[in-house]
């Protein structure tokens, strides 16, 4: 399915299209003696949208944080867009520029205005001229429906607005993949929808997305695959319909019964 979609992408050569954009092979990670991720295998095709859920402490955030090496893994391979993540800092920076990340607590830069938050990456990492970066930034701000706040500081915005800015900040880097680490968990209930709407728009436009979230409505409407993690392992994965209607694993059933 991912391959069929990738064919439409004219920028891609045919050899690129069979290659997964993210490939994780036999990956393990420990915190000290604690085995936080055990034998993770995951292939993500371009334009795929994956939602990862699971109880807290199951390693789902750690997993996506390994993909841009905010955490380092100790065994196995992680290959992002053809680049294997090792301790080589140049490779890591290359991967990070291609992979956008949205955090639970937004992590906007409080000393910079919204527009400066957005142009920072393009100007310093992509070496884009400032004017061009600002034009692009305004376009993305409009896309997340917040252009009128461009000159404000993050502290003047609500949580939902800040998270939309954070999404726009990642988009400004023109990423091949977007990672979302519980993007709505720190938000007041009335602000969750505005952020999910932006994410749904993104999914419709064909962004490759890995989302750690408990928003099951979101998973049902946009995910290609839903994964359930527990104890550092991917216990179950399926398309959203089968995943929610017909969970296989006992622990998945228990988890779903608790959150639905």
């Amino acid at each position: 399915m991912g391959i069929a979609m990738a064919d439409k992408n004219i920028q891609k050569t045919s050899s690129d299209s069979d290659r997964p954009i993210i490939e994780i092979i036999g990956m393990h990670k420990w915190y000290g003696d604690f085995h936080v991720l055990a034998d993770i295998n995951l292939r993500v095709q371009e334009k795929e949208r994956i939602v990862i859920c699971g109880p807290s402490g199951s390693g789902k955030s750690t997993l996506i944080r390994c993909i841009n090496r905010l955490e380092e893994h100790q065994r196995g391979q992680i290959i992002v867009d053809g680049i294997e993540l090792t301790s080589d800092i140049k490779n890591i920076e290359k991967v990070r520029a291609e992979v956008g990340m949205v955090f639970q607590h937004f992590n906007l830069f409080p000393h910079l205005t919204i527009i400066e938050n957005l142009t920072l990456g393009p100007v310093w990492v992509r070496k884009m001229p400032k004017k061009e970066a600002e034009e692009a930034a305004m376009m993305y701000l409009e896309k997340v429906r917040i252009a009128e706040q461009a000159k404000k500081y993050p502290g003047q915005l609500s949580g939902g607005q800040q998270q939309r800015v954070a999404i726009a900040r990642s988009l400004c880097m023109n990423p091949r993949v977007m990672l979302f680490d519980e993007p709505t968990s720190a938000l007041d209930p009335e602000m969750i929808k505005e952020v999910l709407d932006v994410m749904i728009d993104l999914a419709r436009e064909g962004m490759t997305m890995l989302v750690v979230s408990h928003e099951m409505g979101f998973a049902k409407s946009v995910a290609d695959r839903v994964m359930f993690m527990d104890d550092g392992q991917i216990l179950e994965e399926n398309n959203p319909n089968d995943f929610f209607d017909n969970p296989q694993h006992e622990r998945t059933k228990l988890f779903l019964s608790q959150i639905l």
């Binding site: 800092i89 956008g100 900040r169």
Partner: peptide, 30 residues
């Protein structure tokens, strides 16, 4: 400076000198 600031700077692909000069030090020195 919260860890999230370092992580956000890293995940944009900023290198260490850039992250320090543009993100961390302006806030820390203030």
């Amino acid at each position: 400076i919260p860890k999230g600031q370092y992580e956000a700077a890293d995940s944009l692909g900023l290198n260490y000198p850039q992250a320090m000069r543009l993100i961390v030090l302006p806030q820390a020195l203030k």
